[in-house]
């Protein structure tokens, strides 16, 4: 059994879009940590989170559109269907963890799904799962774009991890699960942290202060507020991956094999397409040149 990603890959252009949007996303999350006193974001620290919350959905839309652009063959029917179904599984799992000390079992689906589908489809899976779940529960708020981006990174990261097999892979994914779900919690504290005014200075955002000061304050803030929520989540994710990782990965890979992801239908011995069909002839060339979807041998 191979550990290679089985879904289609993103085109170069899509990767550039995902990279730029991720870069802007990092700034949107992390500006309170490093933005200097004279910057506009710091001058309007109470508005900046909202501005980014408006900007992020647009940029996410652009990144998703670029990643899913059919003309690059990135999101064919197989990929759309499996992403949709995995996102549904994640949505169905989400209410299970609702409110109970952060036990969110959806992370195992996002991480293992990202692992099997590869980084590109993983990015889409993370974003789409959180979006669909937001729509289903009527929970579309300013937090949603941040959640989508965070989850997209988590699933994409799982696809970027080195190729290992067997126990080593499960162990690696379990560790990644712990790190990723803790990191997700830390990150999601950042976007509204500047809005939480009137905290004691040691845990409050101090507009324009040294990066180190704010970073420490943010870590203390997390420690005091959400860590009690994040640690159980990380533990649950790790345990779930250790217990159920192997069968779920096997099921996902079997499905990918069954759908023959990335397989090539071959035609042999078929005579040349009749000359009076220019459309057909042209499309043969397109396939060969553009997406190498099939090899037509004559």
């Amino acid at each position: 059994m191979t550990a290679a990603p089985l879904a289609s890959r993103l085109a170069g252009r899509a990767w550039i879009a995902v990279a730029i949007v991720s870069g802007i996303g990092i700034v949107a999350f992390a500006w309170p940590l490093f933005a200097p006193a004279g910057s506009m974001a710091v001058a309007h620290a109470d508005v900046a989170p909202w501005l980014f919350a408006l900007l992020m959905p647009l940029l996410l839309a652009v990144a998703l559109a670029a990643a899913a652009d059919g003309s690059d063959g990135a999101l064919d029917a197989k990929a759309v269907a499996i992403i949709g179904v995995l996102a549904a599984v994640a949505c169905a799992l989400r209410p299970l963890g609702g409110g109970t000390a952060g036990l969110e079992p959806i992370w195992i689906i996002l991480i293992l799904g990202g692992r099997v589908l590869g980084p590109g489809c993983g990015f889409l899976l993370g974003a789409i799962a959180l979006f669909a779940s937001g729509l289903l529960t009527g929970g579309v708020g300013p937090w949603l774009p941040y959640q989508m981006l965070g989850a997209a990174w988590v699933a994409m990261g799982a696809g970027l991890l080195p190729r290992l097999t067997g126990r080593a892979e499960i162990g690696m994914l379990a560790c990644y699960g712990a790190v990723a779900s803790l990191g997700y919690g830390l990150l999601l504290n950042l976007w509204f942290w500047p809005l939480a005014t009137a905290l004691p200075s040691a845990i409050a955002y101090q507009p324009g202060a040294e990066p180190l000061v704010n970073t420490l304050a943010w870590l203390r803030f997390t420690l005091l507020t959400s860590l009690g929520y994040d640690i159980p989540r990380a533990v649950l994710t790790t345990i779930l991956i250790l217990i159920a990782g192997k069968p779920i990965l096997a099921a996902l890979r079997r499905a990918a094999r069954r759908a023959s992801f990335g397989s090539v239908g071959t035609f042999q011995g078929s005579r040349q397409t009749p000359a009076h069909q220019p459309v057909a002839a042209e499309s043969v060339g397109r396939h060969d040149a553009d997406d190498d979807l099939m090899r037509v041998t004559t």
Binding site: A61, L64, A65, A68, D69, G70, L75, V80, A81, I83, G84, V85, A87, A88, V89, A90, C91, A92, L124, I128, A129, F131, A132, L135, L136
Partner: peptide
């Protein structure tokens, strides 16, 4: 331009109750 993404979101939303 977001058609493909929209389709997977629709699939996710219609599949969820079926999964339950």
């Amino acid at each position: 331009a977001l058609y493909e993404v929209g389709v997977s979101v629709v699939l996710a939303m219609t599949f969820t109750p079926a999964l339950v």
